[in-house]
């Protein structure tokens, strides 16, 4: 599903009390089936951008469109609900929102609200459980009795069970141990590839960006400062310096070595494999 932002502005209004624009005139286009990372400093407006995508934050000006649905400042409830069915949103620390008595009920909550039939729901619950790498024996358990990583998976299952065309995630790996984090991100990538969905991932970890994402969108002070392919961005050191973003570990190490030897590698290494190959070929010598 294609996503468009057309000169979108937004702020956090408290009743009549306005704040400054936290999304400040953003125009962008996210093509179908892309896996896009959103990165940027704290407070840049990443979470706010995600909220705009499913109408939890309404633009004060401009429009956001998801496929043929458009959200503007008047945001009709009907449209919003349709948008929300299309856009599955996984909040930061989604496990804090678990509430049902059993895992099964929790996962079924979304599909029920969006009007799936009983049979469909049973099937969706099973399917999404499998997709997040859990087994059915967990279904009758209370979500509160699970470990951190399991809770996170259940929460994600509850979102993908509604069969969204667009999946939006706010730092889904935060607070998980390295294994747990890697499993979840790899699972998301598989899900993306097998379902042809459009995925948007907010993350601080550049290693995740290079490992799992195709495109990257950098935000700064409510604006998009660049939107391009991951490799394109990290191949351009000037651009990275200008944007003030961090490097993935392999590239950071490559730069350190280059600084040390004064010799530039023939290729930019984004993954451990690439760096290893270059070093084996003697790029640093």
């Amino acid at each position: 599903m294609q996503i468009n932002f057309n000169r979108v502005y937004a702020d956090y209004q408290l009743g009549p009390i306005r704040s400054k624009n936290v999304v400040d005139g953003i125009s962008l286009e996210l093509a179908k089936n892309t896996f896009t990372a959103v990165v940027g400093h704290t407070g840049a407006g990443k979470s706010s951008l995600l909220k705009l995508l499913n109408g939890l934050l309404l633009p004060t000006d401009g429009e956001v469109s998801v496929g043929d649905l458009t959200i503007d400042k008047n945001g009709k409830k009907k449209t919003l609900n349709k948008v929300r069915k299309r856009v599955g949103m996984v909040f930061q620390f989604p496990e804090r929102q678990l509430f049902a008595e059993t895992v099964e009920q929790d996962i079924a909550f979304g599909p029920k609200n969006f009007g799936f039939s009983k049979e469909e729901i049973t099937q969706l619950v099973d399917q999404s459980l499998k997709q997040v790498g859990l087994t059915p024996d967990i279904l009758p358990k209370s979500p509160f009795s699970l470990s951190g990583g399991q809770k996170r998976r259940v929460a994600i299952a509850g979102i993908i069970a509604t069969k969204p065309d667009v999946l939006v995630l706010d730092e889904p790996g935060a607070g998980l141990d390295p294994e747990g984090k890697q499993e979840i991100l790899a699972m998301l990538r598989t899900l993306h590839d097998t379902h042809d969905s459009t995925t948007i991932l907010v993350t601080h970890d550049m290693n995740d960006v290079v490992t799992y994402c195709d495109n990257v969108l950098v935000m700064e002070k409510g604006q998009v400062t660049t939107h391009q392919t991951v490799r394109g961005l990290f191949s351009n050191q000037n651009e990275i310096d200008r944007l003030g973003i961090g490097l993935p570990e392999p590239l950071r190490l490559q730069r350190l070595i280059e600084e040390h030897t004064g010799r530039v590698f023939p290729h930019v290494c984004l993954t451990q494999q690439e760096l290893k190959d270059q070093l084996l070929e003697g790029a640093h010598l």
């Binding site: 499913n54 939890l56 599955g88 979304g110 509850g158 509604t162």
Partner: peptide, 16 residues
């Protein structure tokens, strides 16, 4: 607000 947002995202329509 946060909890309601999460629920809205999962298809709950409040005030109806």
């Amino acid at each position: 607000q946060r909890v309601m947002d999460a629920q809205r995202a999962r298809g709950v329509i409040f005030g109806e």
